[in-house]
Simulated scan of single mutants.
Amino acid sequence: MDKQFKTRSMIFTLYGDYIRHYGNVIWIGGLIRLLEEFGHNEQSVRAAISRMSKQGWLQSEKRGNKSYYSLTEQGKARMEEASKRIYKSESPQWDGKWRMLVYSIPESKRHLRDELRKELVWSGFGSLTNSCWITPNPLEEQVHRLVEKYDIASYITFFNATYEGMSSPHDLVNECWDLGDVNAKYSQFIKAYSEKYYIDKNLVEKGEISDGQCFVKCASLVHEYRKFLFVDPNLPEELLPDQWLGDSAAALFSDYHELLQTPATRFFESVFE
């Protein structure tokens, strides 16, 4: 199960970083070949693809006796949003408002509630109380997409609000998110990847690393950094704590990605063609 999730997660990474820039369609044989580089076998790739299709992220088409897979509209929107957040250059500007989403989903539709919670966390909402979620970011578009996807308009109330107290916006942030934990994760990332970055920079400069190795390292880097989308709510600068490490982690990610990108893309193209 864990392996399948990792395969699925790596497929998302490949679509986000490569396939969507190449017409968004790939032959399943090519995808299997790319994922072999990470130690995933054909069976786990086919199982993950099937699951992603059932969940509405991918769609298939037959050309002759070959199967090709592309992102659905829902998949494209998710990749677009993820990419904006992964490759962002700075924290978002804040308009001083809070978006507030309240839901009352009946017990009989509990699975919907669980799905919605996961999606809200991914988008950067924080839980103020059990069914009241807030964010300082303008996520109206994402909310409308969620409501449409799960067909839950009758259970959702959405506000664009001003916070009038009784404490400070920073206290509100601390109530909804554990930024100390997120900062600790950034610290671990910086420690592990700055070391790897200097080793690989040396290898690249000496020409002692293959395109295939760069491809694996580059996709693994994105794969690892992408995990922050599930924990970092991407808050505006004025709401972040002192000694926030998110920007340092982003700068390291950007430098490392740039180092590996050209040879990694060369390898992808050799398999993709």
Score class of each variant (00 low, 15 high):
G124V: 06
W177L: 04
W98P: 10
V25G: 10
H21Y: 14
Y87C: 00
Y225D: 10
M79C: 07
L259G: 06
N174W: 03
S220Y: 14
E80G: 08
S108D: 11
T129I: 07
L259Q: 03
D211M: 09
K227Q: 15
E36R: 15
R266C: 09
F268E: 04
E37C: 13
K3A: 05
E258M: 10
H223D: 14
E208Q: 13
Y193S: 03
S44D: 04
G64P: 03
D17W: 10
W244M: 02
Q188V: 13
Q74T: 14
R110I: 03
R113I: 07
F38R: 07
Y69R: 02
F215M: 08
G16C: 02
A250P: 03
G96S: 11
E42F: 01
L120T: 05
Y225P: 12
R46E: 03
D242Y: 03
R110G: 14
K149Y: 14
G212Q: 14
M1K: 01
S83L: 08
S220W: 11
T157A: 09
R266T: 12
F267I: 00
S168Y: 02
S210W: 07
H144I: 01
G64H: 01
L179T: 05
L260I: 04
E208S: 10
E115D: 13
P236L: 09
Q43G: 06
I26L: 11
K109D: 09
L34I: 06
Q74K: 13
D17F: 02
S104P: 00
F5Q: 04
L101N: 05
R266V: 08
S9W: 13
C218P: 06
K217H: 12
S123F: 15
T135Q: 03
D232P: 15
F215H: 09
S254T: 08
K196W: 05
F38D: 03
E164T: 11
E141M: 10
W57C: 00
I32T: 10
